[in-house]
Nucleic acid binder design. Structure first.
Lengths: 327, 327
DNA sequence: ATGAAAGCGCTAACAA
DNA sequence: TTGTTAGCGCTTTCAT
């Protein structure tokens, strides 16, 4: 197509017979150049395959054209985060921004104009470092540490969890157990609180077990077994960690329980295996792609001033009722 | 901690009482400055919280310090890709490189020094564009189109698939059906070919159904049903698409089959739901994190000249035998 | 062993 | 409406 050398603005200007400035202004629609020369410059640019050098532009503008995205390392295997990532990237692309991934393995060398932090763990040193950086930060879910992010995207997990419990109650459950996630994330803590509140409010017994992030399948299964042994009267089980509900199924079967019949099962995180399970498992749909997009959008609104420091935006989530709760 | 203004090299040099050049050299260990001044400059840099401006550095060096990573949009929900991404990012961080994500939604505005393409689809316009870019490209699996990438990371899927079929055969299976992925990726095509070869070589009947990427659960299930109806003598089913094996389970049960007993079940892509399934499902472990790391490593070797244009590297994969095949 | 100066490609202020 | 000039922060000659 063209030579290996990237075409610079000077080369383009020369080829079009105008100055650097005019060429630059023409391509950026600054409204300074006549329509005629603008067209001409654009045509020449296309012919030469010109594309501006982003480093030079960044240096000049003192903005990088990129945002950073961090996800907690321990949680990264789940479908939820993959969708979240694509939500962020797509929204960013729409604003001509790049997305640089940041893992707990290493902070980016490249500066970014802002940061999106998915489920920031208070205990994560990288997260604390990023929160202290000088660029705007948007978190998905609250950061439970000290620092205040510039923006927060929040879903009403407590309300939706209550809806789920109501649904189970309506289907006849009277002893609902919760296999909780550790409370290191705001999400995990919120669910535990909502569970206790609901049980108290409805005069239902609490049957709660807590599981640290990244627990093995075996740990999870023995916890479920212990839960059932401790109270054989349990007639519903809600699992918070992604994947836990699927992993629990064999244990429930082995205990002689019929899922969707004498034991209702639900998950706090929807994923395709749940839809495919036998029976399909009721779950809260966190709509991760939308959440990711919302985070990016909020960050850009913070850049432009359309949103002010400390903005909190709600992000709707849904409940998907399936056969495991008698649907 | 420090002021909001990022500290520049000039500010640092002034504070340390040296010239820009000396400060720069001291921080990069260029071996030009005396040990004493080097220590002094580094100390001052730490005190001021200096960090070099990556845009300025890129501009000067004509390299960006970032690599691009592209994944096919339709496949992105799987656990495989999430691990792959983290493999790439971690390896890149080790070399102080950033990773910019590229979706089919938009090409990055920022230039990158190289590209990693996971399972490049011949039919993807973005992929074709990226392959034609002027930077080195490493693909994970072969690109079935015209262009030649600078490097390829390859697993021997044909051999491992043969091993899987041998395992089924050894467990007594004589009519092994394959629920294949569409042949738009090299991986999908390779599996179909390997299946035909193996069946031919062992005098076994071919029972093959092809499924386009991103098919719905219902499409998948009716395909499995049709497969069983067409030949009730089928005694083993291998599923290529990620998640298909789990989704097939209810259909197999409904047909009165006992998995791991009168019907063996296996998947060509391992994932946690398979390990948690009842019974646990035998699968090929693609080791995506290692694959991602290998791609990044190859790209850096291409940069440094440690690997030459056209290098192809093998990436080992494994077979995980579980109860669904009588293990 | 160190400093001075040029310049990467671009945009913004100042001229014309 | 267009051109000229300065300079973003850094690395790299070239000179001392």
């Amino acid at each position: 197509m063209s030579t290996d050398e990237p075409v610079t603005l000077i080369a383009l200007a020369r080829a079009a017979g105008v100055s650097k400035t005019t060429a630059s202004d023409a391509l950026r629609n600054s409204g300074r150049v006549s329509e005629k020369t603008r067209r001409h410059v654009v045509a020449v640019a296309n012919r030469l395959g010109y594309s501006p050098n982003p480093s030079a532009r960044s240096l000049r503008r003192a903005s990088t054209g990129a945002i950073g995205l961090h996800l907690p390392e321990v949680l990264t295997r789940s479908e939820y985060y993959m969708s979240f990532v694509f939500g962020v990237v797509d929204q960013a692309a729409r604003e001509s921004y790049d997305v640089t991934l940041i893992t707990s393995g290493g902070v980016p060398t490249r500066r970014v104009d802002g940061l999106v932090l998915g489920d920031p763990l208070e205990t994560d040193a990288v997260v604390r470092g990023l929160m202290a950086s000088h660029v705007p930060v948007v978190t998905c879910e609250r950061f439970t540490g000290d620092a205040e992010p510039a923006g927060v995207v929040l879903s009403d997990h407590a309300a939706m969890f209550g809806e789920l419990l109501d649904h189970l109650h309506g289907a006849g459950a009277r002893r609902i157990a919760l296999l909780a996630s550790s409370a290191v994330t705001d999400w995990g803590a919120t669910l535990q609180r909502a569970y206790r509140d609901w049980c108290g409010g409805h005069g239902m017994p609490e049957r709660l077990r807590d599981l640290p992030f990244g627990s093995s399948t075996e740990a999870l299964r023995s916890t479920v077994r212990a839960l059932l042994d401790s109270d054989p009267g349990i007639d519903a089980l809600v699992c918070a960690p992604d994947g836990a509900a699927v992993a629990a199924v064999p244990v429930l079967r082995a205990a002689g329980r019929r899922i969707g019949d004498d034991l209702l099962l639900a998950s706090c995180v929807d994923s395709s295996p749940l839809a495919h399970a036998d029976p399909p498992v009721t779950a809260i749909d966190l709509r991760p792609r939308d959440a990711g997009a919302a985070c990016a959008r909020l960050l850009f609104d913070l850049f432009s001033g359309a949103a002010e420091q400390g903005t909190v935006r709600a992000q709707p989530i849904g409940l998907v009722k399936r056969a495991s709760t008698g649907a």
